[in-house]
């Protein structure tokens, strides 16, 4: 090969670079395609309006992971709270009611609305108290 040694070196480097591009593209670390079961949850946040209604006066309490617990300061028949949670995977609600006058079939109704649309309506039954978890679909 004739020509200036520097020029020959530049040509060789260019050739190696061009040849290396496909090798790099094939062997580079790529982010792993998350399995179909492992789709990252959407981070869209929406407001969930939660209404607890008791059939008789009770101390009511509501909690969810990452949300401020809400509790009635005295006996009441309803409690309303708004939680901002993920639109796709909202956290479970832990609901509690301690009835002032225990009776055989006291009821606690939990309604969850998003933008005025009812997405959950459940009723729990108890006598002295109720403590359970409500999953939001």
């Amino acid at each position: 090969m004739r020509g200036h040694p520097i020029l020959r070196l530049v040509v060789l480097i260019c050739f190696l670079a061009i040849a290396g591009i496909p090798v790099y593209l094939i062997t580079r670390d790529r982010p792993v395609g998350v399995l179909s079961s492992g789709k990252l949850p959407s981070k869209k946040i929406v407001s969930y309006e939660i209404t607890m209604t008791s059939s008789t006066p009770a101390h009511l309490a509501l909690a969810a992971v990452g949300q401020k617990p809400v509790e009635s300061s005295s006996e009441t028949e309803s409690l309303i709270a708004t939680y901002s949670m993920d639109a796709v995977k909202p956290e479970d609600l832990v609901v509690k009611a301690r009835f002032v006058s225990p009776q055989k079939n006291a009821a606690l109704r939990i309604q969850v609305q998003v933008a005025g649309k009812m997405i959950k309506d459940a009723t729990l039954w108890g006598s002295e108290s109720i403590e359970d978890v409500i999953s939001i679909p």
């Binding site: 949850p41 992971v65 956290e91 479970d92 832990v94 978890v133």
Partner: peptide, 14 residues
Amino acid sequence: AKWTRLQLAVLPKS
């Protein structure tokens, strides 16, 4: 079943 629900409620969905 109720005990299980209450225990797991402390775990964020993520």
